[in-house]
């Protein structure tokens, strides 16, 4: 008998008493009553609590803010599908020589990514209550590796993409995409349960919330 058949057989035998699958009570909150400005305020509070740096700007102010945050970077990577308008603050004449493009069709190697200082991506949806940003690998967010290896992640969140609570956010995305949920910069509590920010993932997380 194959292991598969045997294990399934054992499980069926274990369930000989035919336990009933209960109805799932879903009395927990499904929506949040907050309006856009309250959502932004809550998201900022939670991100700051987890030591992310946050700025809230008008959509038109995004390029300038990105340029400002990248001022000290020798190089940065962006996914090819990034909103072109976001990079206008960095383009003087023929474009920015510090910029590297990445896509699934033309991916940078891990070693190349390791030599790059920063990354700029968009995001799929954010959860205000938990300070979580979800990336789903869409063209404006790119491959998972680019938002992981460079040490500084600049992530743009559009106000319309902020959900109040987790159930609302998960309803907005396709669970079969490669997903990364990010809540602050990487951290550990492994030494005496004291939280330390910045381990293997990007040690610096900048979130730009675009109204």
């Amino acid at each position: 008998m194959s292991a598969r058949e045997e294990i399934l057989g054992r499980i069926r035998t274990a369930l000989k008493d035919n336990p009933e699958a209960p109805q799932i009570p879903r009395q927990y909150r499904q929506t949040s009553p907050l309006d856009e400005s309250a959502l932004i305020e809550l998201l900022v509070d939670r991100l700051v609590d987890y030591k992310a740096q946050v700025s809230v700007v008008d959509a038109a102010g995004v390029p300038a803010r990105i340029a400002e945050l990248l001022a000290g970077a020798h190089s940065y990577v962006v996914p090819t599908g990034i909103d072109a308008g976001w990079l206008t603050g960095l383009d003087q004449g023929s474009g920015d020589s510090r910029r590297r493009l990445d896509s699934t069709a033309a991916p940078l190697s891990v070693a190349e990514l390791d030599g790059i200082d920063a990354v700029v991506t968009g995001s799929a949806v954010a959860v205000a209550e938990t300070g979580t940003i979800i990336l789903d690998g869409s063209p404006n967010q790119g491959r998972r590796a680019i938002s992981l290896v460079p040490d500084h992640h600049i992530c743009v969140v559009k106000a319309a993409d902020i959900a109040g609570i987790l159930p609302e956010a998960l309803r907005r995305i396709d669970g079969t995409r490669p997903l990364t949920m990010i809540s602050g910069p990487s951290a550990t509590s492994d030494i005496e349960l004291e939280r330390v920010e910045g381990v293997h993932g990007p040690r610096k997380l900048d979130v730009i919330i675009a109204r």
Binding site: T180, M181, G201
Partner: peptide, 8 residues
């Protein structure tokens, strides 16, 4: 409230 990273 949420762990720093979840991968799916």
């Amino acid at each position: 409230r949420m762990n720093p990273y979840t991968s799916l």
